[in-house]
């Protein structure tokens, strides 16, 4: 395949940024999008240019490192697919592909297509855990968890923290991420003791990081490579109102 790539370049957080256009020929249909980017970088090197920087690591759709907004879609147009699992057979020969970083104030650009998603870590640090001292846990089977709850918790826990929800949201809201993380723990009996505190502090950390507000568009869930449902946002809203009311009457 031959392709034209319109790629975002930016030297750092303070740089304005610009698009660059490159022609790339002889791309295999079986290669992944990132392998195509590798090929482009090798070509840029040969031409004496600096390669394009982009985040990637496991290349099997689970580490959440890869990002890229491809033709306007976070992780590209395919459903339930990360950029690293997106294959070139989904594009057509001669196509012009626009590649941009995940854009959000809370995700400042580090360089080119690499953005800083540490805001997600801060949200988790605020309460995305169950306080359990190593060694103090009861037997794994001491507390039965209904299969349904466990399955729902797993659906939420499948979140890879890639930030596609933020990138696809018109308001750069991080509600789906926060809801998935909080929902996973709030659904389990182990997570009940800290539920209220968790919800309030995670939402507060989210707000402080400069994300936008949820407007129930559903773009986040549509872009989510792990298909995390909007139900978790409803649940987060519910858990949050309960926690607030309990706090008022406490």
């Amino acid at each position: 395949m031959n392709l034209i790539l319109k790629v975002w370049r930016q030297d750092g957080a303070d740089d304005e940024g610009r698009f660059e256009t490159h022609q790339i020929n002889g791309v295999s249909e079986d290669s992944s999008f990132l392998e195509m980017m590798d090929q482009l970088n090798e070509q840029l090197l040969e031409e004496g240019n600096e390669p394009i920087l982009f985040d990637h690591d496991c290349r099997e759709g689970v580490c959440g490192t890869c990002s890229l907004t491809i033709n306007g879609f976070a992780h590209g147009p395919e459903n339930s697919t990360t950029t690293c699992q997106l294959h070139m057979r989904k594009f057509s020969d001669g196509e012009t592909i626009t590649v941009e970083p995940f854009r959000a104030r809370a995700f400042p650009v580090v360089r080119d297509l690499v953005v800083d998603r540490s805001a997600f870590d801060r949200i988790t640090q605020a309460g995305g855990f169950i306080t359990v001292r190593t060694g103090s846990a009861p037997d794994g089977n001491a507390l039965p968890v209904p299969k349904d709850d466990s399955d729902k918790a797993m659906d939420a826990a499948a979140c890879i923290g890639c930030g596609a929800c933020v990138a696809s949201c018109k308001n750069a809201s991080a509600m789906l991420f926060t809801a998935a993380k909080a929902g996973h723990l709030n659904l389990l009996p182990q997570g009940q003791a800290e539920k209220d505190k968790r919800v309030l502090s995670m939402v507060s950390a989210m707000d402080k990081s400069g994300f936008g507000n949820c407007r129930n568009y559903g773009e986040c869930s549509a872009a989510c490579p792990k298909d995390i449902s909007l139900d978790y946002i409803a649940k987060l809203n519910r858990d949050h109102v309960k926690a607030k009311i309990k706090k008022i009457f406490a």
Binding site: G72, F73, T98, A104, R105, N171, A172, G212, A222, A223
Partner: peptide, 16 residues
């Protein structure tokens, strides 16, 4: 919300 997304995508699409 506008402040949270200071720059629009060059290609702006809507999925759902």
């Amino acid at each position: 919300n506008r402040a949270a997304r200071p720059r629009e995508n060059d290609v702006e699409v809507t999925k759902r």
